[in-house]
Design a protein around this nucleic acid. Structure first.
Length: 682
RNA sequence: GCGGGCAUAGCUCAGUCUGGCUAGAGCGUCGGUCUCAUGAGCCGAAAGUCCCGAGUUCAAAUCUCGGUGCCCGCACCA
C-alpha cells in the first residue's frame, strides 16, 4: 500500500492565518507518521492561483494577475516552510501540467457526454469587449439606493444582488454601460454522476464530510457551470470559448495531479496506481469540492484516476472571542507567527493539542502561553533537562547498562495517529512524558547516586530511553524539537519503528540545553494582534451652509452641510426648536456613515446630532475644524462602512457637559451643547 | 422564511452516531511533598442541574418532541 496525501490548496490572494494552516500542518503530521512507520508516501501541496478575486485585486491595484500570484506564491511557500511543513511536491495551479491535464479532462468529459452547453444572458462591456462577472459591475442598489453597489452584493445594505437588479449598471472595467448579451457555458452533469459518487466508500471520512456530502445527495445534484467569462484562468480549448476560462473549482483540485506531474516522473504510479490510498486534508468549507466535484470530474473522465479514500475535514479555529478574518485582518497570520519569536514547533504543538477535530475551537494568546509554559516547558522540557543534566554532572555524560526494559505504551499513540486523531495522540504523548517524570521522582536518583551509583545510572539510562521513545512519537508533530532532543540524547536524528523499539545503552550524550523558553510577553502580543476596536460611527464636524424648510413637511428642515471633503444634504426635524437663521453657518456634528434615505421625497445623507431633554432640543456644536472626525477613547479606528438606521439606534449616544459619550466611551474632543442641556442624543 | 450546526467543571476541550462502570482529560484553584531540573517535579482534593422541559426505556449527556440562547449557509421582503 502506498499513501498519497494532499492538503487543500490555499488561495493565494492573501496571507494564510492559523486556521488556514490546520490542514496544511495536519497533512504534514500524517505524512511524517507514515514515514515513521516505514510506509511509502507522497505529499502534495500548492497554491490555487486562478479566479475572480485575483483578477479583481489586479484591476484594483493596477498590476497583472501574474505579479499578484507570484508574490503570494512566494509568501505562502515561505510560511509553510517556516512551519516545518515538508512536502514532496509543492507547486502551483498556474503551471503548464495543470493546464494540460484540465484541458484533457475537459475534452474527454465532453466526449463521454458528461458536459452540456447552456445559454444564459449576461452583462457585456462593449468597450472592453468582454463579459462581466458580477463583481465587475457597479450600480445603484435597488434596495437602499446606494450608488456603488456591486453586482453580487450591496456594501451599504449587505443585500445579495443579481447584476440585473442594479439601477444604472456600470462596468468597472471601462465605465461603459453594459448590455445584456447571450453567452454560453459548459456545465458538468453532476446529476448523471450522482449514483457513481454515492458508491464511494466514505467509512473513513470525518463526520462533517459524511454529513455535508449526504446533504448534497439528498438535495439532488444539479449540473454545474465549469466555465466563466474571465481572462485569468485556464483557457477553454473550444471554438467560441476564446474569451472564457475554466471556473476555479474545476481546475484547482486537478492541480493536485498537475503539480505531481510537474514534480515527479513517476506521477502515474500515484494517480493511477492500484494500491494507492488517497488521503485529503482540508477545512470544512472545502468538502463538496473534494467529495463531489473533483471525484465527478475524474469518474466522468473514465481513465482510472485515483478517487479519494479519506476526506479529513477540520472545523474552524476561532481567534480570541471572534472569528479569524482575512478581509478584516483579524487574527494571527503566518507572517505574524514568525514575528512573535515563538518557534514554529510551539505553534504546531498548540494547533495540534487544540485541533478542531469535532467542533470549532478557540485560540487565545493566554492559552498559548499556558500550554508552552506549563505543558511543554514544565512537563517535557523539564524531563529532558533534569535527566541529561543529571547524567552530565554525575556520570560524565554517559549512560550505562539497563537493569530492566523501559516500557512505554507506544502502541496506543500509533493507533491514534493512524485514525488521524492527532489531538488525542498528542495528549497521550504528554501523558507518557508525565509518567517518565514520575519514574524519575520515585526512583530518587539524587539519593541513590551516593547509596547505589550503579542502580542510579541504570535508572537514568532507563529514563534516557523513555525520552527517546517519546521523542520518536512526538516527531511528526514537533520535528525540530525532536531533532534537538535527539542531539541532546546523543542519538542520531532518525525516526522509525526500529529506533522506537530499540533500547540504547552506554550512550555519550550531547550537551543539555533548555528546550523551551518561558513566554512572558503574552499581553503585549495579544494587544498587538488583537482587532482594533472600531468606532461604529463616523461623526464629523460640519458647517450648515444653507437651510430651508422642507416643502412637504412642517417639522423638517433641509440643510446643506459642508463636511470638508464634500457637501451633503441632511433632513432634520428641528423646525419647532430653531429658526433657520440660528442654524445657518453653525458648526455642528453629523453622522456621515449612515445609509442614505429619502424622507418625504428629499434625500438625507446623514444625521445631524442633537440632544433632547424633555421638550427642549439643542444641537451639538464643535469648535474643531470642518471635516474633523470625533474620536472616542478606547476606539482605535473609525468605521468606514455604511450602517443603517436600526444599527444606529442600537448605539448609545449621550452628551453631558462638554463631552459626547458613545457606548460609555468619552469623546477625545470637546463639544458644545447648545442651550446647555444634557441628555440622550437623537 | 428555509436548511444545517452548537450548548458538558473556572478556562480549553473529549465523550453523543452505536443509550450502560461512580460523566472524563489538560490547564487553573486548593492542600501535601521532593530538591536532580528553566520558580520546574511528584501525590492528593475540591469543582458539573451534561442549556431548560417533557417523552421513550430497566437505564438518557447520548434517542424522540417542544422551548431558550448562540453560530453558519441559502433565500425573500422593505
Amino acid at each position: 500500500m502506498k499513501y498519497l496525501v494532499t492538503s487543500a490548496l490555499p488561495y493565494v490572494n492573501n496571507i494564510p492565518h492559523l486556521g488556514n494552516l490546520i490542514p496544511v500542518i495536519s497533512a504534514d503530521i500524517y505524512t511524517r507518521y507514515l514515514r515513521l512507520k516505514g510506509e511509502k508516501v507522497l505529499s502534495v501541496l500548492g497554491t490555487d492561483e486562478h479566479g475572480t478575486t485575483t483578477e479583481t485585486i489586479a484591476l484594483k491595484n493596477n498590476v497583472t494577475e501574474k505579479e499578484i500570484v507570484d508574490k503570494y506564491f512566494k509568501i505562502h511557500k515561505e510560511i509553510y516552510e517556516w512551519f516545518n511543513c515538508d512536502y514532496d511536491c509543492f507547486g502551483r495551479t498556474s503551471n503548464n501540467e495543470t493546464k494540460e491535464t484540465v484541458q484533457e479532462i475537459f475534452l474527454k468529459l465532453k466526449e463521454n457526454n458528461y458536459l452540456q452547453e447552456q445559454e444564459i444572458k449576461q452583462y457585456y462591456d462593449e468597450k472592453a469587449k468582454r463579459f462581466l462577472s458580477d463583481r465587475f459591475i457597479e450600480g445603484t442598489c435597488p434596495h437602499c439606493k446606494y450608488e456603488e453597489a456591486r453586482g453580487d452584493q450591496c456594501d451599504a445594505c449587505q443585500k445579495l444582488l443579481n447584476p440585473t437588479d442594479l439601477i444604472k449598471p456600470k462596468s468597472k472595467l471601462s465605465d461603459a454601460e453594459p448590455v445584456l448579451k447571450k453567452t454560453k457555458h459548459y456545465y458538468l452533469k453532476l446529476n448523471e454522476l450522482q449514483r457513481e459518487l454515492e458508491k464511494i466508500n466514505k467509512e473513513e471520512w470525518t463526520e462533517n464530510a459524511k454529513s455535508v456530502t449526504k446533504a448534497w445527495f439528498k438535495e439532488g445534484l444539479k449540473p454545474r457551470a465549469i466555465t466563466r467569462d474571465l481572462k485569468w484562468g485556464i483557457p477553454v480549448p473550444e471554438k467560441g470559448y476564446e474569451n472564457k476560462v475554466f471556473y476555479v473549482w474545476f481546475d484547482a483540485p486537478i492541480g493536485y495531479i498537475g503539480i505531481t506531474k510537474e514534480k515527479r516522473k513517476d506521477w502515474e504510479d500515484w494517480w493511477f496506481g492500484k494500491d494507492v490510498k488517497l488521503i485529503q486534508f482540508m477545512g470544512k468549507d472545502n468538502i463538496p469540492f473534494h467529495s463531489i466535484m473533483f471525484p465527478a470530474s475524474l469518474i466522468g473522465r473514465k481513465k482510472g484516476f485515483k478517487i479519494v479514500d479519506v476526506i479529513d475535514a477540520n472545523e474552524y479555529i476561532n481567534y480570541e472571542n471572534t472569528k479569524f478574518s482575512k478581509s478584516r485582518g483579524i487574527g494571527v497570520f503566518g507572517d505574524n507567527a514568525k514575528e512573535t519569536g515563538i518557534e514554529a514547533d510551539i505553534w504546531r504543538y498548540y494547533l495540534t493539542i487544540n485541533r478542531p477535530e469535532t467542533s470549532d475551537t478557540t485560540f487565545t494568546w493566554e492559552d498559548l502561553q499556558d500550554k508552552n509554559n506549563n505543558e511543554l516547558l514544565g512537563n517535557l522540557g523539564n524531563l529532558v533537562n533534569r535527566t541529561l543534566s543529571f547524567i552530565k554532572r554525575n556520570f560524565n555524560s554517559k549512560t550505562g547498562r539497563l537493569k530492566e526494559k523501559p516500557e512505554l505504551e507506544v502502541q496506543e499513540v500509533l493507533e491514534l495517529y493512524k485514525k488521524r486523531n492527532f489531538k488525542e495522540a498528542l495528549k497521550k504523548i504528554m501523558h507518557l512524558s508525565k509518567k517518565a517524570n514520575n519514574e524519575f521522582q520515585t526512583r530518587e536518583p539524587w539519593k541513590t547516586k551516593n547509596e547505589d551509583p550503579e542502580k542510579c545510572l541504570a535508572d537514568l539510562t532507563l529514563i534516557h530511553n523513555l525520552i527517546k521513545k517519546i521523542t520518536v512519537l512526538i516527531q511528526p508533530i514537533m520535528p525540530n524539537k525532536a531533532d534537538e532532543i535527539m542531539t541532546q540524547l546523543g542519538l542520531e536524528k532518525k525516526y522509525d519503528l526500529e529506533v522506537l523499539k530499540k533500547d540504547y545503552e552506554e550512550i555519550k550524550i550531547g550537551k543539555p540545553k533548555a528546550l523551551f523558553k518561558k513566554i512572558e510577553t503574552i499581553n503585549e502580543l495579544k494587544n498587538k494582534y488583537s482587532p482594533k476596536k472600531k468606532c461604529p460611527l463616523k461623526i464629523k464636524v460640519g458647517k450648515i451652509t444653507n437651510i430651508k424648510k422642507h416643502p412637504e413637511a412642517d417639522k423638517l428642515y433641509i440643510e446643506q452641510v459642508d463636511i470638508g471633503d464634500k457637501k451633503i444634504q441632511i433632513i432634520s426635524g428641528l423646525v419647532e426648536h430653531y429658526e433657520p437663521k440660528n442654524l445657518l453657518n453653525k458648526k455642528i456634528l453629523v453622522v456621515e456613515n449612515l445609509k442614505p434615505a429619502k424622507i418625504r421625497g428629499e434625500k438625507s445623507e446623514g444625521m445631524l446630532l442633537a440632544v433632547q431633554e424633555k421638550e427642549k432640543v439643542g444641537v451639538l456644536e464643535s469648535s474643531e475644524d470642518i471635516g474633523n472626525i470625533i474620536e472616542f477613547e478606547g476606539y482605535e479606528e473609525t468605521n468606514q462602512e455604511i450602517i443603517d438606521i436600526k444599527e444606529f439606534q442600537k448605539i448609545k449616544l449621550f452628551a453631558k457637559k462638554n463631552k459626547l459619550y458613545l457606548n460609555e466611551a468619552k469623546s477625545s474632543q470637546n463639544i458644545k451643547i447648545d442651550k446647555e442641556i444634557k441628555g440622550v442624543v437623537k
